[in-house]
């Protein structure tokens, strides 16, 4: 799932690493790191918003691990994905690095591939997949679709968009 964690870091070298290290150790992906320098706390700590993609079941361990590293966690939330749509892909989906195709959406930090239904192709025939993407809002959903279209153009995959985003 996609989540944001806001930590407070002392303005010293090496602090950020303490917050980030458990994320990669637990198999999470860092989507973005945003230093809120304009919101420095009275104790001169800098709030840093970290957006990550991680297995839902590892969230508790992660929070625990970051705290154990001596980092103050101000808040953490799942990013709610409210806009969803399905698209059809036709082409050599699997041979063109499906993982990469999905990752280009998941790494945006505002959208993710939430479902994928692939119809298994005959040998060397193009396959078909129904891919469902969710995003934080409709605007970002459109951005994610544009990324998917661009990726698929590179990979010579035909994208069939829905008539309307519902």
């Amino acid at each position: 799932m996609l989540m944001t964690i806001v930590v407070e870091l002392k303005d010293q070298p090496g602090q950020l690493l303490k917050a980030l290290e458990p994320i990669s150790r637990l198999g999470g992906n860092i989507v973005s790191v945003y230093h809120q320098r304009d919101k420095i706390t009275p104790l001169k700590r800098i709030p840093v918003e970290i957006t990550i993609q991680i297995d839902e079941r590892k969230v508790e361990d992660l929070i625990e691990a970051i705290r154990r590293n001596g980092v103050i966690i101000r808040s953490y939330n799942e990013v709610r994905l409210t806009a969803t749509t399905s698209l059809l892909l036709i082409g050599h989906i699997i041979h063109t690095d499906l993982g990469d195709t999905i990752n280009r959406i998941d790494s945006t930090g505002f959208a993710e591939v939430v479902d994928m239904h692939i119809s298994m192709p005959q040998l060397n025939q193009p396959s078909t997949a129904m891919i469902t993407i969710s995003a934080t809002n409709e605007e970002n959903l459109k951005k994610a679709i544009d990324i998917l279209k661009k990726t698929c153009r590179e990979k010579d995959i035909t994208v069939i968009e829905p008539l309307e985003l519902q």
């Binding site: 399905s86 036709i90 239904h117 119809s119 025939q125 078909t128 129904m130 069939i160 829905p162 008539l163």
Partner: peptide, 20 residues
């Protein structure tokens, strides 16, 4: 590039395919 399988997969979700 449209395949018969594309229609099958689309139909599962209640869609068909048309050139718009």
């Amino acid at each position: 590039n449209i395949t018969p399988e594309a229609f099958e997969v689309a139909m599962d979700k209640g869609y068909t395919i048309r050139l718009i």
